[in-house]
Simulated scan of single mutants.
Amino acid sequence: MTPRLPYRPATAVAVAGLLATACGGGDSRPSSAAEKPHGYVAGAEEASEAQWRLVLAGDDRVRLLDPATEKVTDVAAAPGVTGVRSDGRFAYLTTSAGMRTVDSGVWTVDHGDHVHYYKAAVRDVGTVPGTPGAITGDQAVTAVSGGPAVRVLDRKALEGGKIPAARGIPGRAAVAYAEHLVIAADDGTVRVHDRQGAETARLTEPCPQARGQAVTKRGAVLGCADGALLVTGKDGRLTGTKIAYPGRVRAAERATEFHHRPGTPVLAAKAGDRGLWILNLAAKSWNRAGSAPLTAVSGTGEDAPVLALDTGGTLRSYDPKTGKQGDKTNILKKPNAASVIQVDTARAYVNDPAGRRVVEIDYRDGLRVARTFDLAFSPQHMVETGW
Rank of each mutant, 00 (worst) to 15 (best):
F373S: 03
A308M: 04
R364T: 15
V359F: 03
A283R: 15
A304R: 14
L294F: 02
D362M: 13
D327S: 08
V340H: 01
A337I: 14
A338M: 14
T300N: 08
P379T: 01
T329K: 09
L307I: 14
R368L: 13
R371S: 11
Y349H: 12
N351P: 11
P353Q: 10
S339L: 13
D344E: 06
L309I: 04
I341H: 04
V306M: 07
R371A: 11
D319Y: 12
S317M: 05
Y349T: 12
L309S: 01
Q325T: 12
T329L: 03
Y363T: 01
V297T: 15
L315E: 01
S285K: 15
L315Y: 00
N336F: 13
Y363A: 02
A346M: 13
S339N: 04
I331K: 02
A282W: 15
A296L: 12
S298N: 02
N280A: 06
T300R: 11
V343K: 00
G323H: 08
N351K: 04
N351I: 07
L307D: 04
V306A: 11
A370D: 12
A308N: 10
D365K: 15
P305Y: 13
N330S: 13
S317H: 06
I341R: 00
A354D: 11
V306D: 05
N287E: 12
G326T: 11
R357N: 03
V358G: 02
G301T: 09
P305G: 14
P353L: 05
T300Y: 07
K334D: 09
R356P: 05
G313W: 00
K324W: 11
F373D: 05
G323T: 13
Q342L: 10
R316M: 04
I361L: 12
G355A: 09
P335W: 00
G312F: 00
A337K: 02
L309W: 00
S285N: 15
K333N: 10
R356A: 07
D374V: 06
K328G: 01
L375T: 02
V306S: 07
K334N: 11
S317L: 06
A346K: 10
V358A: 08
N280W: 11
Y318C: 07
V350I: 10
T372L: 10
V297A: 04
A308S: 06
L307F: 08
D327G: 12
R347V: 09
A304S: 09
K328I: 05
L309G: 01
R316G: 01
R371V: 06
K324C: 15
L332P: 02
S285C: 10
D327E: 15
N336K: 09
